[in-house]
């Protein structure tokens, strides 16, 4: 049995220890906001937080996260930070097909929590592990810029 915290709730799973956290959160807990793109750490669609750090859930064996705090996109949706990101992504036209967006939003939130006033280069570095096949990234960079401005003062409290 592996015990961990998922979006603030204590949970237990008897998935085999090598099972990917990605599969466990999607198939067992039906949190399907977290997506699978490549399954190899390259695309960031599966991004989640482990103890507040951005990680790729497709690379995490469930047996390694005993006691950890896992937060998925569903876990941040009620936050003020999420509301600002949501608005900013819509306003900047940063969402097309949407497949990459949960991962992008997690990466954006991680970046802004660490660096509330990022430069454009820092924004691009912050989302460098997230692939988007639709937008060409510029609108996503705009969205994060906008979110930094709109949420001024909000990012560092977590």
């Amino acid at each position: 049995m592996i015990t961990f915290t998922l979006n603030g709730r204590k949970v237990e799973t008897d998935a085999p220890p090598s099972a990917r956290l990605l599969d466990v959160i999607r198939d067992e807990y039906l949190l399907i906001g977290t997506k699978e793109g490549c399954g190899e750490g390259e695309c960031g669609a599966c991004s989640i937080f482990v103890n507040n750090l951005l990680q790729n859930s497709c690379l995490i064996p469930i047996g390694s996260i005993e006691g950890a705090e896992i937060v998925t996109i569903e876990g941040i949706m009620e936050s003020d930070q999420f509301k600002i990101l949501d608005e900013s992504y819509s306003e900047a036209g940063g969402v097309q097909c949407g497949y990459c967006i949960p991962g992008m939003v997690m990466a954006s939130a991680a970046l802004l929590a660490q660096n509330p006033h990022p430069s454009e280069a820092e924004i691009r570095e912050g989302i460098s592990g997230n692939l988007c096949r639709c937008t060409g990234y510029n609108m996503i960079v705009d969205a994060i810029n906008l979110a930094a401005k709109k949420g001024d003062g909000l990012w560092q409290k977590k």
């Binding site: 998935a15 085999p16 090598s18 099972a19 990917r20 599969d23 198939d27 699978e36 399954g39 190899e40 750490g41 497709c58 690379l59 995490i60 064996p61 390694s64």
Partner: peptide, 16 residues
């Protein structure tokens, strides 16, 4: 696990 999990990658839903 960033090398090991890629090395043993299997189909989605199937533990490495």
């Amino acid at each position: 696990g960033t090398d090991v999990m890629v090395l043993y990658k299997s189909r989605r839903g199937v533990p490495p």
